[in-house]
Each structure stands twice: as structure tokens, then as C-alpha cells.
Nucleic acid binder design. Structure first.
Lengths: 277, 277
DNA sequence: GTTCCGCATGAATCGATAG
DNA sequence: ACTATCGATTCATGCGGAA
């Protein structure tokens, strides 16, 4: 088994990031503290000052990211005064001015979203996963996240209709054999930019937890084994433990001692189980 | 049967809207031409000038909307130079400065998104449904869109995608109602802000940008019978015909004579079938 | 009447080629 | 260098007709 490093650093990422080398990270996956949320834990960045607070950090992230790397930001604006706040929109615009490319926005559909009822809105069951890059030719390993084809195929492609073969061939001409083989026994297809995952929060102490599947999916998609993953708002450490499991080096930064200790503790527990290594 | 008015006006909504009275509309549901799309039909508004083009229109919409009414805008930014363009973000920010409240963003998950494969992105299978209001105490009839327990869209979609069932019902125009009867006995719950619907591919002659279910859902949610619905970019007229079916008055504006004529023609056809009224 | 199969095609996007 | 056009890619669905 290869040696996979896992660094956990206590401190404010705005400071800590300055110690990291340029272009040294292949994927940044993080879920920063939401505005006005988690006041008891992170001290609650106010919605109106969110962009101002985040930009110096994103600037450092831009520096430490490998030119072929990707930054995935899990975020959702809160409701403020009956409206969705615009700080996420403003952040995207401001980050582009910093030099980031806003490549894509994935949707995380939370199947079991937070319960509740309000007179003027329904339950919020989705979050944004904003993909930023430094350059247009970033690494993307699409085959690693293919999914089973939809149920429609079972009925429709039962006897593999010759139609699709013909249509593919008509436009192509040269690649006869290949196109046919694409469809014969096809069971895996590429996913879309909508992810359906349940919110299964293992660490109930941490309010902003996301399921393991979320960082796992993006690590498969944007990194390979031995790459380096960074989470500047490590929280309960989900990103780091997923990285470990997937043989990616990881760096986590966490400002709160409680969470920092919690991550260290869980790390020890995992290491004490030999089968996990 | 009550008398339901349906006005279809040929012209540029930037002009035509000026003839409408203040506060005279209860719901605006529309899907404006997307940037650089449909160049052959619409003029093809460029992405960089989209906001500038839209703001005078949204300003008129603000004027004609009832203070308790809602404006639902179906839109999605295109990829430009390998990035998602920011005009939608900019539009939201600019519309708030006009006086709009950005109350919510619903997600329309399009199950059958456009096919294709690219080295740097997956297929885009969602669109935004931006909810804007004039005031915080807008009308919302949440009970009208309650759905059986579980993922409402899944159940609903299952029924809808059963083509044969639907086809039988489609002839009398009440296909949806019959499916609902299957749900009797199940417990009803409120939906979330994620909608799962497939795009109806074809109406033989022309394609509709969105399925009937989309305006139908928002009409149920934000209007009652006898209310007035406006679609300033009527296109193939989906919003108008749904309004008619649901006993809402409607006003449609369409700039292209071809579409205008098409709507008039379809209107006649519908009126010639007595069972639909 | 059901169920099954053939066929068409969609608010797309990239990269190469041409002016 | 910068812009316009064109071919290639690919999944889910509706409709029509056949078994």
C-alpha cells in the first residue's frame, strides 16, 4: 500500500494558505461556512460582508492550485429578509475578475432535505457546486464516474435496434465498427451536471456536513491516485477521509480547535483499523 | 363554463407592454429567447448585451404586475469560451436594483437533456426558474401543488412516461387529471424547490421550450381561477393554452409573425373541440 | 386493446477549418 | 489574432405503426 499523506492544520486558512506552495494542489473541494449560519461555531460571517471576506482566500486558492486542477465550491445563499441573498452571484463575478474561470455549476439535489414549512417558500432541497478553473484544459477523468444507463434502455434496446447503428454510421462513414460497439451491451453512460444524493451527515456535530459521495464523486472526476486534495474549511474532515480512502494526498485547514481535535481523533481511530490501510 | 379571455398580441413586448395597465397581472410566466440561441427565428440577443436588452422589459413587467403577484423567469446561461456566462447573475443583481425582490430559485431538472459529449463538461440537464416579487406578502397557494408522499416528481414522472396511458388521455385533454386519481389514498405533502420534468420533444410542427407541466405548476401555486397570466415571450403559446385549460385569463405577446399565426391557429383548433371547454 | 419496436430529434458544445 | 460556419458527439422521450 502506498504512503498517503494527510496534513491537518489548525488555523485560519486566510493565513495558513500563504505557507502552501504555488501550483501544489490538484483539487480544492470545500464547503465554506455559510453566511450568518453557524454563528456559534465559526463566528458567523455576515451575508453583506461575505464576498469581501472570501476574496482574499480565493486569491490564495488560485495561487496554490495546479494549472490543470479544479476548485469545487459547495455553497448556497441563505434567505435574508424574505429574499435569496445575492452574495454567491457577486462572488462568482468577483472571482472571475481575480482570474478564475467559472467553468460549470453542478446541482446537488438533496433528496432528504431539511424539513419545515413556511408560508412563502418550500423546502430548499438543492445546493450549488461551483466549478472554477485556472485554465481551459484542466484534468477531467470522465470515465471514472459513469453511471448505469436509464431504465428506458432495458425496454428499448432489448434486441439492440439496428437504428442507432445506422444513424451513427451515416454521419461518420469511417468508424463503422466502433460506433456499433458503443451501443452493443451498453450499460454505462456519462452523468449530467445534476447529482442526486441523500444528505447523510455522519458527523452530527458539524452543521455543514455533506455526504461522502459528494467529495468522492469530484475526486474521481478531477483527480487520480497520488494527487493532492485541499479543503481549507475542513470542518468534520469528510473531504480528508474520503481522500485517504481514495489514495489521494490531502491537506485540511480548520480554524476551530474543537473540529481540529475531532479530525485528529477520528484519524487515529481509522489508523488503528489495519484493514482500512 | 365561465368566460376566459385569451389575448394574443403581435409585437415587441418592450413596446406592447406599455399599453398594459399598472398592477393588472397576477402571474408572469415566461421563457425569453436565450442568448445567441435561435438566431434564425429571433434576432439572437448576444450574451454580452443580454442584461442591457432585458432590463427595460423587466421594468415594464414590474409595473404591470399586481403587488401580490409573481414573476417566474425560466432561463439558463450558455457556455461561452469554455465558461458559463455571467449574464443571468448580473441580471438578478440589476433587477433587484430596479425594485424586484429575488424571492427564490427553483431548479427544473430536465431528465432528457440534450445529448453530446465533450472533454471538459457533462450534459447540461437543469435550468433556472427564478421567482421575483414586488412585495413580501405575495399570493401563494401551497396546498394546490401538494403531492403524494415520497419524491413527488418521481411518482409523477413515472405516470407521465407511461406513454400509452397518457396517449389515451391526451385526446380528451385531461390526461393529467386521470393520473392524479391513481394517487388517491396516499398522503399529501408539500413539494420542494426542485422539479423533475422531461421536455416534451415535439408538437409535430414546432417544439415547445418547456412542457405544459411547468407553467401549470406555477399557475396552481401562484394564481387562482379567474386570475390573469402574462407571457411576454409567448413562443409556441404553451403558457397561454395551459392558462386557458386552468381557467386563468391570459395575455401573450409574440414578436414573430410565424409564431403568432401558429398560436392563433392552434387556438382555433382547440376551440373547435367542444369537449375541451 | 396492449405491448413492443423503429425512428426522429432536442434552448448543446467543442474543435477544426475557412474567411 | 479574431470571428463565422460545420461536423461529430450522444441520451431520453414521444409518436406512429406493427405484432
Amino acid at each position: 500500500m502506498k504512503e498517503i499523506s494527510q496534513n491537518i492544520i489548525l488555523g485560519d486558512c486566510a493565513d495558513v494558505l500563504k505557507n502552501l506552495e504555488d501550483n501544489s494542489v490538484d483539487l480544492i473541494f470545500t464547503s465554506p461556512p455559510y453566511a450568518d449560519q453557524r454563528k456559534t461555531t465559526y463566528g458567523g460571517i455576515s451575508a453583506d460582508k461575505y464576498v469581501e471576506w472570501f476574496l482574499p482566500i480565493s486569491n490564495e486558492l488560485l495561487r496554490v492550485l495546479n494549472p490543470k486542477g479544479t476548485f469545487v465550491l459547495n455553497i448556497k445563499e441563505k434567505v435574508s429578509n424574505g429574499e435569496r441573498h445575492t452574495y454567491v452571484m457577486e462572488m462568482i463575478i468577483a472571482m472571475r475578475k481575480q482570474g478564475w474561470l467559472w467553468t460549470e455549476e453542478f446541482i446537488w439535489h438533496k433528496k432528504n432535505s431539511f424539513p419545515g414549512k413556511w408560508p412563502n417558500r418550500f423546502r430548499d432541497s438543492w445546493e450549488r457546486l461551483l466549478q472554477f478553473n485556472k485554465a481551459k484544459d484542466f484534468n477531467m477523468y470522465q470515465d471514472e464516474v459513469r453511471v448505469p444507463i436509464g431504465d428506458w434502455a432495458k425496454d428499448r434496446l432489448k434486441n439492440l435496434s439496428d437504428t442507432d447503428k445506422k444513424r451513427d454510421n451515416a454521419k461518420n462513414g469511417s468508424g463503422f465498427g466502433k460506433n456499433v460497439s458503443n451501443w452493443v451491451g451498453k450499460e454505462l453512460v456519462y452523468p449530467t451536471n445534476v447529482l442526486h444524493l441523500a444528505t447523510e451527515c455522519q458527523n452530527k456535530n458539524h452543521s455543514a456536513a455533506f455526504p461522502n459521495e459528494l467529495p468522492e464523486w469530484f475526486m474521481k472526476l478531477f483527480t487520480k491516485e497520488g494527487d493532492r486534495v485541499l479543503d481549507p474549511f475542513a470542518g468534520s474532515g469528510t473531504t480528508l477521509f474520503v481522500a485517504q480512502k481514495m489514495q489521494r494526498h490531502s491537506i485540511g485547514i480548520e480554524i476551530l480547535p474543537e473540529y481540529y481535535e475531532m479530525i485528529l481523533k477520528q484519524k487515529e481511530q481509522i489508523q488503528s483499523i489495519p484493514t482500512l490501510f
